[in-house]
Every structure is written in C-alpha cells, then in structure tokens.
C-alpha cells in the first residue's frame, strides 16, 4: 500500500508524468479495444453461419463451399514458395556469404529489394496482369498468381534470411574453414542449419501475406471456385472467395463465415511462427 501511496504522491507532484502514463495506457487500451471489436465482430457474424455444407468437397451455388478455396490457398502458398523461397534464400546467401563489402551490385540489390518491399499489392496485381496474363498469354491462371506473389514476398524472405545468416557467429565459419571445408560446404552444412529458424519465420511471414492477399490476385489468378486441374487454370484463394461472395451480395452470411476461417488460419500461422521463435531462442540460449 505504501508503495502505491508513494507513487500517487510522486504523480501529484509531477502531473505531467501522470498525464503521460494515462496517455500511454489509454493508447494500449484503445488498441486492445479496436482489436477486440474486430475479432468479436467477425466471430459474432461468422460463427452462426458456419455449417457443414460450407465445407462440402465441391463448390456449387447451393452450398457455396469454401473447401476448394481453402485447398487453393494451400496450393497457392506452396507454389509461391517453390519460386520465392529458393531465390530469396540464395540471394541472402549471396549477400551475406559471398559478396564483398561495399560491392556496388550489393547496393543495387539492397535498393531494389527495398523498392519491392514498398510496392503496393495493387501495383503487383497490375504488373502480373500485364506481364503474365496478357503478355505471356497465360490468361487468369494459378501460375500467374503464384509468380506475382513470389515477387511480392521475395523481399520478406530475403531480409529475414539475411538477418538469420548474419546472426550465425563467424566462429562457426572459421571453424569449418579451418577443418578444410570449402565455402559451399560451410554454407550448406554449417551456416544454413543454424539459421533455419530465422529463415522459417520469414517464410511464415510470407505465408501470412499470401493468405490475406486479394488485390494482387483478382487480376492474375482469377476467381474460379474449383481446385485447378493444372497451374494454367484459374482458381480462387480464400480471400478472393470472400471478395467474390461479397461482390454479388447473395452470400453475405457465407462471406462472414469465410472471414472466421481466414481468421483461424491467420491464428494458426502466427502460432506456428511463435513456436518456431521459441524453439530458436531456446537453442541459442543453450549455446
């Protein structure tokens, strides 16, 4: 109690401090309040509309099933990562392990990566449409969407991998070189394994972005509500599914239910990334 009184006394003497404290706490409360409102809003509107038909295997206009969209979302994530992950990780390896300091090329790569990171998704959508859909004559297709998204998430993967590689102590590399291993072997057998949790967290960040993306996909992957037979066919992800449901105003309730599923997906993705981060910090803690 005395501590509390003491604090109150201090605040009486220094009203500015009290004011600052209140403002800070108010900001946190407002943030929590808004987030709570959004989540409650989604759950209240969505959960009553969740029904088994919404998860039927095939989409038709009676059940408005989101199963194909969920599978498409997973396929889209995989296909995008097939392109983005190796390129992102390899370029980070180049930047950290191979490039010499002050190399002009490195500066250019850094600059372009930053530019890529700043481009709004709608501009990616336009680009993907112009390049893959029109110029390459692929039409609305899965591959066009995946390539567009791959460019979009490339900077995220590059940056997190770079950070993870930099965090690997130089002693590891020196040790490996000392044992007579070449640079390549050092990278793949010594440096990369210790950087894996960091790299994974970047990949998961990207997955989150792919799952929530709409603007870049409506112009590239199209809106067909079926699992595509090949990468040249169109297919809608869950976020696009929700957009399409809202478009005609016929399936508002189902759209809300879709929002719940999207939310759950995001929570799962975030949960996995949290687990990985924890595993990472535990491991470094041991060392």
């Amino acid at each position: 109690m005395s501590k509390f009184k003491q604090a109150m006394e201090t605040y009486r003497k220094r009203p500015l401090s009290l004011f600052l404290r209140i403002v800070v706490i108010a900001a946190a409360v407002i943030t929590a309040f808004i987030l709570g409102a959004i989540i409650i809003y989604i759950l209240v509107k969505g959960i009553p509309n969740l029904s088994p038909e919404l998860f039927a295997w095939e989409y038709n206009t009676d059940n408005v099933s989101m199963t194909p969209a969920i599978i498409n979302t997973i396929l889209m994530v995989l296909l995008t990562l097939v392109f983005a992950a190796p390129i992102g990780i390899f370029s980070a390896i180049y930047l950290v392990e191979y490039a010499k300091r002050g190399n002009k090329l490195v500066n250019i790569i850094r600059m372009t990566t930053e530019t890529l990171a700043g481009i709004p998704s709608i501009v990616y959508g336009l680009f993907g449409y112009l390049m893959f859909v029109i110029a390459m004559h692929w039409g609305y297709s899965f591959i066009a969407g995946a390539l567009t998204l791959a460019i979009m998430v490339l900077p995220t993967i590059m940056r997190t991998t770079e950070e993870a590689l930099k965090a690997v102590p130089d002693s590891y590399r020196d040790g490996s070189f000392g044992l007579g291993a070449g640079r390549l072997r050092t990278v793949f057998q010594v440096v990369l394994p210790s950087a894996i949790p960091g790299i994974l967290s970047g990949v998961i960040l990207s997955i989150g972005r792919i799952v929530g993306e709409t603007a870049a996909l409506i112009f590239t992957a199209g809106t067909i509500a079926a699992i595509p037979a090949s990468v040249m066919n169109s297919g809608r992800t869950l976020a696009i599914h929700m957009y399409a449901l809202l478009n005609e105003g016929l399936y508002m309730n189902q759209a809300y239910a879709t929002a719940v599923v999207l939310l759950v997906m995001v929570i799962i993705i975030n949960g996995i990334s949290g687990l990985i981060a924890k595993a990472f910090s535990k491991r470094t803690g041991e060392k």
Binding site: L246, E248, G249, M252, A255
Partner: peptide, 25 residues
C-alpha cells in the same frame, strides 16, 4: 462502389441512401 454487397449494406445502413441493384440480388 463495385460490389452489390457494399451497395446493399450501404443502403441498409443509411436512412437517406438510394441505390440500384439487380432484381435477382
């Protein structure tokens, strides 16, 4: 707006609004 849903939600939420939609929706 480019969406029938937004059109209907807007009109449903605003006493003074007027809009138009497909009869089927």
């Amino acid at each position: 707006t480019n969406s029938t849903a937004v059109m209907m939600t807007t009109v449903a939420g605003n006493d003074n609004a007027i809009g138009y939609i497909s009869l089927g929706s």
